[in-house]
Nucleic acid binder design. Structure first.
Length: 135
DNA sequence: GTCGGAAAAG
DNA sequence: CTTTTCCGAC
């Protein structure tokens, strides 16, 4: 009793807030939204389930069901009308070395977040769940 | 489709 | 630094 109302679930697991999860728009300077933020944003909304969705079975794995639409949405967000899946996927490929994503080989349009070093947390800034790196 | 080098933009 | 653009290779 007497617990403050309106407080969301607190992050589980002794969370630290390091690098890339917090590089949102609130970063010092002027950093734009990053692609993996955008992907996560789409993934959490039901209205985009026909465009991009989590793959059942493997946690962190997602399938782009409509590459053209994802590219269009991404292009709109970044004011890059000429965006297409070919370019978007190149940006995704740069994440391989950054250890944010990797490809699920053999599965079309399927990628996977590196949950080996990720942890789920509630992001108080957006009121959404984000994955951040475990420290 | 997917990969990754290279150059360029912001 | 991240992402965009272009593109040859597989």
């Amino acid at each position: 009793m007497g617990q403050p109302l309106g407080s969301e679930e607190v992050p589980r697991g002794g969370v630290a807030f390091p690098d890339w999860a917090y590089k949102a728009e609130s970063s010092p300077g002027s950093r734009q939204i990053q692609l993996w933020h955008f992907i996560l944003e789409l993934l959490q909304k039901e209205e985009f389930r026909h465009v991009i969705a989590w793959q059942q079975g493997e946690y962190g794995e997602f399938v782009i069901k409509d590459p053209d639409e994802v590219a269009r949405l991404w292009g709109r967000r970044k004011c890059k009308p000429q965006m297409n899946y070919d370019k978007l996927s190149r940006a995704l490929r740069y994440y391989y070395n950054k250890r944010i994503l990797h490809k699920t080989k053999g599965k079309r349009f399927t990628y996977k977040f590196n949950f080996s070093k990720l942890i789920i947390v509630n992001c108080p800034l957006w009121g959404v769940r984000l994955w951040i790196r475990e420290k």
